[in-house]
Write a protein that binds this DNA or RNA. Structure first.
Lengths: 226, 226, 226, 226
DNA sequence: AATGAATGAGCCTTCATTCAT
DNA sequence: GATGAATGAAGGCTCATTCAT
């Protein structure tokens, strides 16, 4: 999928995992090559340096992610339904409740977002940008009178709410009791963020804390946050 | 304030800046000691290891931050006003539009939040926890019917919106034109997040994008995001 | 001339330049192949190893040099004239005041002379030896009573004087002012070494420093040492 | 003598030997440290890099050499005697027929002379320059009418003759039979070069090859060239 | 209490070489 | 015959740490 060359592909995969786990400085070429099962000199042969391997790994990682735009028929839904579906899909991606259970792609992206390198441009252009564009389309339909800047900050409010559970996961866990924290599964968070947002946009009744709106999405999984 | 020992204090300050700038692995003891103007062996002498220096530096850093709870008389305000003041204060802290212009304390906290170490417990207990508790008090008054879990996720929604401009700053910048990005100063963001949140809670009219509610806080500064 | 195989020839040429410039250890196979415009594996394919490439390059290099014995009709000259012509020709070769301006062949020979490898035998046998033999013939005519050992050391005295300006060029330059150093062109050195040698052999009046003997060789060039 | 610091001194000594033996590129820091019996990281601690270690080693090496100017009372001798003594001393130094038998200092100097680095300036200024100055003083007395340039080239003729047996030793050996080469001991070469030079300067009868002038210097050694 | 010197481990990179095609 | 891919070994260097003072 990424490359016909098995060595290069193995290296990108292994590098992604190591960089996600230990960061750029913390990861070592030796560990990457051991994980990939290739010779240590292969990194400098296929990529010129550790830096370039990192950049390529980041780009390769997000190219493997499932894009929301690919799987969601947002146009055929009402804005309300589309928004809920978007948030659900975004959360699922972020919390990486996915098929293969590989959690490192999101980790790598979070690192890149917080401390951008030269790979950030490509990441935004090819992955984050199009994904955010889908959100702006939805919001454009729900808030026809908002200007472009306001559409952006509304989008950021939505994305920020979702990403918080990835970025500040450790803090969230420590701020709650274990029992309460365990309630924060995908459905609960989807309901909350969707309800919060729709109410803010005037598309639903404000939160009163009495109950949660029914979930539009049938989800068999109720995994808690990792 | 940090320590009676000048060498130790200098070391903690220098370590905080280096760790914030380069991360734990990227920062070197040599650079820290050069910055602090002390001998390289001093780190292992005063602290036992690089790890412990990092932990102490994190704790020392957030002890210097101005706590919202210290400066805001939230009890004497209406819930709406208190919330706006909280968001304003939080954003100002996060965006580090502060007196000394030292941006490294927030950087260090973001690193610790995203990749928690043993210092995370102390950070939450002594700094983030009390701060979040103030928010929960405000929310408890505005949403008397919400249970504790819901109070938490509402709090996370607020905090997540604010932190997004710190965490994903590089991405936000790339998703907008420079002109629009430059609009996102402290006042604008305070207005937006406050309005978004109040509407979600039924304390204000929903956003329609037509205009921004007037600012409760008189702010002389209109600094854009760094 | 060197080889029918164009790849092999290009490799030898490129290797000679790289080895001359950086020495055996300093030169890399990659740089040689880049310069030759061939694949990196070609060296180990055509030659067995870096060592053998070096040896072949040294031999190939001195095979391209113009031999004094080829261009000088020493037999038809008086011993005095022959000696002057030999010294002139030797100096010209050493100082590499030549047509193509390629200075690397002499460099390579100097390296081999100072730190002989297995290529030294061939170098002496095929290039230096015959050239020295011509000098011995001349000296045999001027010093008929000298034994073979003395002929050798007289020859070494002549060659040593000439080579000094190649070998210790950097030192000579630093021992003189720039103006005086610039006087040391081919004619001046030919006159000096010839006069010095002829006087030592009783074939001319001793040096008194008053002036230089007229040059037998008409030289249009007055290049200074490089 | 070089330094009070034992590690630094050991390192300079070992580095000199390794660099003399294998050249800058060929010598490895590991071998140097093994020879010096110190840790490999000591090189980067005391000197900043391999380059600077090399430069310091060259300077340190020639500072240990016995200066002709220190041991020869040239002023009390006739010019002829002084010249012979100078040549004898120079040859002894070059051929390194010395007490400790350490041949590496001359080797290192030859390398630096042929391929000068930044250490060359110091080498000329502190070691070669003063030594050559003594020769110029002697020549100034024997050739009162020669200008400065001519004094220099006469000096180069003398030094060139001597150095040839060091620089081109391998070639000399190959150009002669072993029996004849073995005749070239210190006395023989001193006699030859002195006679050759004195005759060239009109201070002795020209060479006729019949015999060698008696040696002024009583030498117990008759070592052949190494 | 504090420091210059020294160290073992490990880093990234480059080397000459070989392999599979 | 010739080459892109891959490799084991070693390179110089930097790291956090410890030692002796």
């Amino acid at each position: 999928m990424l490359s016909q060359d098995p060595t290069k592909a193995k290296l990108l995969e292994a590098a992604g995992e190591e960089f996600a786990l230990n960061g750029f400085e913390g990861a070592t070429i030796r560990a990457i090559c051991v994980r990939a099962g290739v010779n240590q000199a292969a990194v400098n042969y296929h990529f010129r340096s550790k830096e370039q391997l990192y950049a390529q790994a980041v780009i390769a990682a997000h190219q493997c992610r499932t894009h929301i735009s690919d799987e969601l028929p947002l146009e055929s839904l009402s804005p309300t339904e589309a928004l809920r579906l978007y948030i659900y899909s975004f959360l699922k991606n972020v919390l990486e409740i996915q098929t293969d259970g590989a959690t490192w792609r999101s980790e790598l992206m979070m690192r890149e977002i917080l401390h951008p390198t030269e790979a950030c441009d490509a990441l935004v252009k090819e992955s984050i940008g199009p994904q955010f564009e889908r959100l702006r389309e939805i919001l454009g339909r729900t808030c026809p009178e908002a200007d472009d800047t306001r559409i952006h900050v509304i989008g950021f409010s939505i994305v920020g709410q979702c990403l918080h559970y990835k970025m500040a996961n450790a803090v969230c866990r420590r701020l709650m009791t274990t029992e309460r924290y365990d309630q924060l599964n995908l459905d609960y968070l989807t309901d909350h963020i969707t309800g919060f947002t729709l109410a803010a946009l005037g598309l639903a009744t404000p939160l009163d804390g009495a109950g949660s709106p029914g979930s539009l999405v049938q989800s068999a999984s109720s995994e808690v946050l990792q």
